Amino acid sequence: HNLTITQGKLFFHYNPKLCLSEIHKMEEVSGTKGRQERNDIALKTNGDQASCENELLKFSYIRTSFDKILLRWEPYWPPDFRDLLGFMLFYKEAPYQNVTEFDGQDACGSNSWTVVDIDPPLRSNDPKSQNHPGWLMRGLKPWTQYAIFVKTLVTFSDERRTYGAKSDIIYVQTDATNPSVPLDPISVSNSSSQIILKWKPPSDPNGNITHYLVFWERQAEDSELFELDYCLKGLKLPSRTWSPPFESEDSQKHNQSEYEDSAGECCSCPKTDSQILKELEESSFRKTFEDYLHNVVFVPRKTSSGTGAEDPRPSRKRRSLGDVGNVTVAVPTVAAFPNTSSTSVPTSPEEHRPFEKVVNKESLVISGLRHFTGYRIELQACNQDTPEERCSVAAYVSARTMPEAKADDIVGPVTHEIFENNVVHLMWQEPKEPNGLIVLYEVSYRRYGDEELHLCVSRKHFALERGCRLRGLSPGNYSVRIRATSLAGNGSWTEPTYFYVTDYLDVPSNIA
């Protein structure tokens, strides 16, 4: 807008934040220059609390790290170098490059900038070799853009010569660093050979998330399962459950009422301010606690030095998902009996873990797994792929695949051998790939016309006998059925096997 004052003059007093240069501009645009008398524009009460600059400061050096910015700028000295009290560095987070010096300023003089007072450097006698002032900004957020400017702080001049310097606002972004852990990993099994893994992005990506790394490792069953005799009275049979499938998407929606109208769909109840505040506090606490764990609990591995020492970490090797089922080394339970199943799973520490690289999504279907087997899954978020990966501390989750139908069934015939004193040795093959492992066998036998009897055969007993022995049988026709019990439950009964026990007292003698 054009402003013209045809008559009258300007009068400025007691404006401590208004620089004289701005008042002189007002004289020019209003056409009143030359009308004012000496005392109409006070030299001592206008701009006496402001830094009124008329020179431009330029930054000469900028260096960044993930949490620091090192700045240096060209030296500046007023005509009387004693008038320079120091520099004021202003900075704040700036997602967009549209910041002005006066953003967030209120009537009390406060604003949204963080201000650092910096002492002037030592003055050199040689004007050509003056030290460049600077400042190291610490405690910054990774991968965050900051708006920065600097200006001088000078003393009051009796001659009211307006001098000083100020830089333009520059924008500097800190470097990326390792992201925080992925949030809320959930693993479920939808079949006997697959596990579905879902997660949420890290709360602090500290860069642009480029991919996720998912490692999985087959877990050995508890050692007590191999040692305890679950045929003993009072000892509860062990059981394991597989990871249940995901709930429906509708039930997972946030901010939804727990109660549904019987007449149909209901609208979600909005969260109160107290609920939102509580969630923010919980989120802040979780982030602080995660940072504490990362800094205190997890110790970084030592990389190899120039002395030739090897990095103890196993090298990563990509495998196809079809090879995942046989990740671990199978060892027989008892070496003397080769027909026992290889369900003991000690994992070799030198073995390469299978892994998958996930790009542009937060889910993965891990296939080719062994049925009813526990897996430990390790999830890392990465925001750099080359020249070397920059990934987060791992988040861990466990899951067990679903049982395989008929995996616990005894394959092959049940054979028998009759000894003296009416002892019958029953023999059968253990299931080759049971659900988890076989903890015991149930032997059901009966003599024709009598009630059915049951015998429990422990895992250890089966390994020693290759089956079991029935003792003290009365003469007669017998039928026997056997079924295995694994961590997933009972298998199917075998087809009945028949044998006849004679009275050993009636056996004919070869003595003449």
Rank of each mutant, 00 (worst) to 15 (best):
C267V: 13
N477W: 04
Q380G: 06
G325T: 13
E249S: 11
V331N: 09
M427E: 15
I276P: 08
D506A: 10
V457Q: 05
K302M: 12
E433R: 12
P431T: 02
V297H: 08
A405V: 10
S367P: 13
V443F: 01
L453S: 06
E389A: 07
R483N: 00
P354G: 12
S320E: 11
V331R: 09
D273P: 15
R240M: 13
N510R: 14
A463F: 12
E227C: 10
H211S: 05
S341R: 05
G412N: 14
Y498G: 12
P245W: 11
L237Q: 04
D229Q: 06
T415R: 09
C391N: 01
K287I: 06
D222N: 11
L293S: 06
A309T: 05
C267E: 14
Y396R: 08
L487I: 08
F298L: 10
R301T: 14
E282L: 12
L364G: 09
R447T: 06
S367L: 09
S474V: 12
H352Y: 07
R313I: 07
A381M: 04
S315L: 09
P270R: 12
R316L: 14
T307I: 02
S398Y: 14
E388S: 05
I377P: 01
V331I: 15
N206Y: 03
H461W: 10
E217R: 11
F372L: 05
V329K: 04
T272L: 10
G472P: 05
H352T: 05
G306Y: 07
W242K: 07
T401E: 00
I482R: 01
T288I: 15
H454G: 15
H371Q: 08
R370T: 00
R313F: 12
L213H: 05
K317E: 04
E224G: 05
L277A: 11
S243D: 09
G322Q: 05
G306A: 09
L235G: 07
R318N: 07
Y375A: 01
N206M: 11
Y441I: 00
E452R: 07
S284L: 06
A399F: 07
L235H: 11
T328K: 10
H454T: 09
L379K: 00
R319I: 06
D291E: 14
G472E: 09
E265D: 14
A405R: 13
P434H: 04
R218V: 03
D385V: 08
G322W: 12
E362K: 07
T307N: 09
E451S: 14
P238W: 15
A395P: 02
V397L: 14
S479M: 04
A407P: 01
E217Q: 15
G412E: 06
E279I: 05
S315E: 10
G472M: 09
F337K: 06
T343M: 07
E281V: 07
F355P: 04
S363F: 13
Y478I: 01
S268Q: 14
Q384I: 07
V297C: 04
N421M: 12
S458N: 06
L505N: 09
K361T: 10
C267H: 15
H254K: 13
C231W: 03
F355A: 12
L473N: 02
Y445Q: 03
V414G: 01
K317Y: 08
R469A: 03
D503S: 10
K357L: 09
E378A: 14
N255V: 10
L453F: 05
K361S: 10
E282K: 04
V297M: 12
I438R: 01
R218S: 12
S474N: 11
N490V: 09
L321V: 09
M427L: 07
Y498L: 07
T401G: 00
H254V: 09
E227Q: 09
S342L: 14
S305P: 12
P338N: 06
F298E: 08
A394V: 08
N422C: 06
V296W: 08
R400H: 14
R469F: 15
D229A: 12
F499G: 00
V329F: 05
G264V: 12
L235V: 09
F372Y: 13
I410A: 08
N435C: 02
G412R: 11
G234Y: 07
S274N: 09
P413K: 12
E282W: 15
F215M: 08
V443D: 02
G491H: 02
Y292F: 08
E227I: 12
S315T: 13
L232E: 08
F462Y: 03
A399Y: 09
H294M: 14
K253S: 11
S486M: 00
D250E: 12
E378V: 10
L379G: 00
R483E: 01
T373C: 02
F499C: 03
S509I: 15
P244G: 11
M427D: 04
A336N: 07
D291L: 08
K233N: 13
N208G: 12
V331P: 14
K236Y: 14
S398M: 08
V345R: 09
G476N: 01
D222I: 07
E356D: 06
Q219S: 04
H294N: 06
L237C: 13
A394K: 13
G207W: 03
C269I: 12
E279F: 04
W216V: 13
E247M: 09
A405T: 09
V507M: 14
G264D: 15
E417A: 13
E433S: 13
P496Q: 04
F499W: 02
V414T: 03
E420A: 06
F298V: 05
P354T: 10
E265H: 08
S342I: 03
P387S: 08
E247A: 10
D261F: 08
D450Y: 07
P354H: 13
R218T: 13
R286W: 05
F289A: 04
R318P: 05
V214S: 03
G449I: 10
L487Q: 06
C267F: 15
P300E: 10
C391S: 01
V296R: 08
V439W: 07
E310N: 04
P332A: 09
P244F: 09
L277N: 15
L470I: 12
V423D: 15
R446W: 04
P475N: 08
N422I: 02
G472K: 14
E404R: 04
K406I: 12
F298I: 11
E224T: 06
